[in-house]
Amino acid sequence: MSAVDLETELALAQDEDAARTAATHAGATLESSATGIYWLTMRAPDGERYVARIAWTRYPDHAPSVKFAPEVDGPLDQTSAWPLIPGYRAGNYDICQPFTAEGQAVHSEWGTGPEAWPATGNCLLWVVEQLLHDITDRYQGRSG
């Protein structure tokens, strides 16, 4: 039985082709291990490989949980799986930015105003492109 509702499942099905294409174009891969769970495998400029898990509970209404694992379906509690990028907090296993559920939880003031979760357009593509951009342009190395 799926962990997400039918609306989420249908909305993700509509948006995931564009997100997969964007990932492929950037030399990354986007795969799904269960409905609402995506794994984005990316290469940093230094050749290091990173795997981000993007987990949706209700799409597109709520921001996804974004964490890193050593491999697809891997554990989410290893700091060495995390890249060093401003706002990415390996020690807390979270990304303190408006495009994640963790960031929205830490900053309750983001719930309204310009940092509020948009819930419009292709949110899956947006999150994938944010991660790809961060690993390409803002990357500083691997977390210890």
Binding site: H25, A26, P114, E129, L132, H133, I135, T136, D137
Partner: peptide, 15 residues
Amino acid sequence: GDGQHAYYLTHSSRR
């Protein structure tokens, strides 16, 4: 535009 955000274009994920 506002003072709280930077807006820019990326191409192939690069600014």
